[in-house]
Structure formats: structure tokens, C-alpha cells
Simulated assay, not measured.
Amino acid sequence: MTDYSNSKPSVWFWVISIVAFIWNGMGVYQYLIKAYNTEGFRSQYTTEQLEVIAGVPAWATAAFAIGVFGGLIASGFLLLRNKLATIFFVFSLLGVLVHAYHNHFVIDSVAMMGSTAAVFTGIVIVGAVLLLWYSKYATRKGWLR
């Protein structure tokens, strides 16, 4: 059996980790401007869309928070080369999936926002799955302790 305990991660590990941290940081930013209902947030939507957003149930808002904060924490653990990244990427993926369920099956965001909503949701889900997979891969390679 190979001892990977002293394995140094590749340059790509650091690139992916930094991009993941920035990506999830942008998600946290989106959550915060929504939570604080900033002018910048309100300017992105019509009055009808804002009314729907204002009626989002607590479980969907919690899923959004778990998705983005879980992803940011996981990305931080990835940068610290800590195995806890995988656990937090699991939480993040679960939050993303629950939030996507709400957006596409409860409020039909495609009808409200257009097909871009479905495309972006797909990108977020694929990204969350890939980051979870990558954290498991990095653990197998011995890059995470």
C-alpha cells in the first residue's frame, strides 16, 4: 500500500480550490444581498418576481443558506487540506438540491425567470457534485488529512 500522507497536491488542486472558494463566496454574497433585501438585489427583479421571492418558505431559504455557506466552508477546508471538506460538500449539495427543488417544482422559476434559471441551476448542481467528487478524489490521493 502506498503512503500518501506526505503527498503534495498538484497545482491544479490549488487552482480548483481557489476557484471553488471564490465561486462559493459569490453564492454567499447572493444569499446575503437577498437576506438583507438590498437595493442591488431588488433592482435585478420585477415587482412580481420580488413578491414571489418574499414568499419563499423558511425551509427553502435554509436550503439556500446551507448550500452556499456549506460550500464556502467546504472550500475553506479544501484550501486547508482538511478531510472535513467532503462532509461540508455533502451538506452543500443537499442544500443545493433542496433549493433547486423549491425553485423548479414549487414556484416554477423557469416560467417566472426564463430558461436561464434552469441553465444556472444545472451549472450549480453539476458544480456541487464535481466539488464533492473532487474532495473525495483529493482524500484518496492523500492531499487531504
Rank of each mutant, 00 (worst) to 15 (best):
Y4L: 09
S5I: 02
K8F: 01
V11E: 04
V11C: 02
V15R: 02
V19S: 03
A20F: 03
W23R: 00
M26D: 04
V28Y: 05
Y29M: 08
Y29H: 09
Y31M: 08
L32F: 08
I33F: 10
A35V: 05
Y36I: 01
N37D: 14
E39M: 08
T46D: 07
Q49M: 05
Q49S: 07
Q49E: 13
E51W: 05
E51C: 05
I53W: 13
P57C: 10
P57W: 03
P57L: 08
W59N: 11
W59D: 07
T61M: 14
A62F: 12
A63D: 11
I66V: 15
F69Q: 12
F69Y: 15
G70H: 14
G71S: 13
L79D: 13
N82A: 06
N82Q: 13
L84Y: 10
F89G: 04
F89P: 02
V90A: 09
S92Q: 06
S92K: 07
S92T: 05
L93C: 04
L93M: 07
L94H: 05
G95H: 02
V96S: 02
L97I: 03
Y101I: 00
H104P: 01
V106K: 05
I107M: 08
D108N: 02
A111G: 06
M113F: 15
M113K: 07
G114N: 06
V119D: 05
V119S: 09
V126W: 06
G127D: 06
L132A: 10
W133K: 12
S135P: 13
S135G: 09
K136F: 14
Y137I: 06
A138Y: 03
T139W: 14
R140S: 14
K141I: 03
G142I: 01
R145C: 04
R145W: 07
